[in-house]
Design a protein around this nucleic acid. Sequence first.
DNA 1: ATTTTCATTGAAATTAATTTCAATATTATT
DNA 2: AATAATATTGAAATTAATTTCAATGAAAAT
Lengths: 197, 197
Amino acid sequence: MTKRDEQKEQRRTMILESALDMFIHKGYGETKIADIAKAADMSMGLLFHYFDSKETLYETLIRIGAEKLKLEFDFSNNSPLALFRAAAEDFFGTINSTPFAAKMFVLMENAQHLDSLSPDLKGMLSESGKLIRKSIPVIEKGQELGEIKAGNAEALSIAFWCSIQGIAQYIALCPDAPCPNADWVVSLLENKESESQ
Amino acid sequence: MTKRDEQKEQRRTMILESALDMFIHKGYGETKIADIAKAADMSMGLLFHYFDSKETLYETLIRIGAEKLKLEFDFSNNSPLALFRAAAEDFFGTINSTPFAAKMFVLMENAQHLDSLSPDLKGMLSESGKLIRKSIPVIEKGQELGEIKAGNAEALSIAFWCSIQGIAQYIALCPDAPCPNADWVVSLLENKESESQ
DNA sequence: ATTTTCATTGAAATTAATTTCAATATTATT
DNA sequence: AATAATATTGAAATTAATTTCAATGAAAAT
């Protein structure tokens, strides 16, 4: 690979990383091209040599995120609580693997509420809403089995997934902070009475 | 009160409510004055008759939020776990009292990362970072007493407060969703082994 | 009823962002 | 070394937002 191609690749990732950081800290609209160019240490003109527009840059990030951040949960797991434990471990494992993953997760969460986004891009976003809905029957089954505490199943689902979402957001914004345990979030759902019977 | 004054008051709150909704859904930068004016069913010109600028409007909201949303936690509580239970109950009580409170909470959380904000305004924002830091010694004390589970105290603090933050955000954006129990979040911290000794 | 005051609009002015581009410097090719 | 290709800049053009304002309509005061 020639010196130029290296430089080119470096610059491209530099832009993407700076942009990702700014987008998750300040949001799409508050992030100015000038800011990104400055953070990536180049002129605005050059940035536009790499990406046609601010929107293209944003979309590129989302595509990368959708590519790398494939979270698959097996909702047919025989033990409901084990499913949530596995999901939490998978999730925390992913956001802990690299600061990039956590940041990407936040970006995609935020992108949901953006109406300037093209419809096909929206399809790529892994909606937290879907996870909340899909988890409800699993929680109900867990309650029947006595694994999961009593209470409104939807509210429990919201508690579980939103806790994960809130923690992920913090880790993305403060990558040096110590990351909570997956188990701790599971104890939101766990029925403490169960073992004593 | 004259008919005009009523109308004036109505319009003002209409603007504030529309703006609050838009700001928490799309963020400050992505929210256009045109959007707010449309949602509040008036011309842009009129909106500027009520608020000098977009920033003034935003600041007004934050001032109102800071006024109404005073969360005080007594960090000298004798039982650490009881303190966190009280904090969670206070918090969920507040965000459940009115959709306005939950929305305001999210607005103020988001405002933190905005650099266009004047310094005195920033002082008004109740930083979640502060709560996380202040809670660490309390958690450590709780661990000594066996009330709180073992693990990195800072990570536990992050888990607790970020869960609350994540849930609050969801409730603000979907006010009709069922709100989780304060107790559930407390079980993030609780030491399950404790009762059997 | 008339006058005055204020609410309201829509369009024009301003400001701020994005995007383009001609000129220049740098690297690669011959 | 000369030439070609492309990276880079800074400034100009464009587009998009905010903000102002003169004109108009509606309510309050006289």
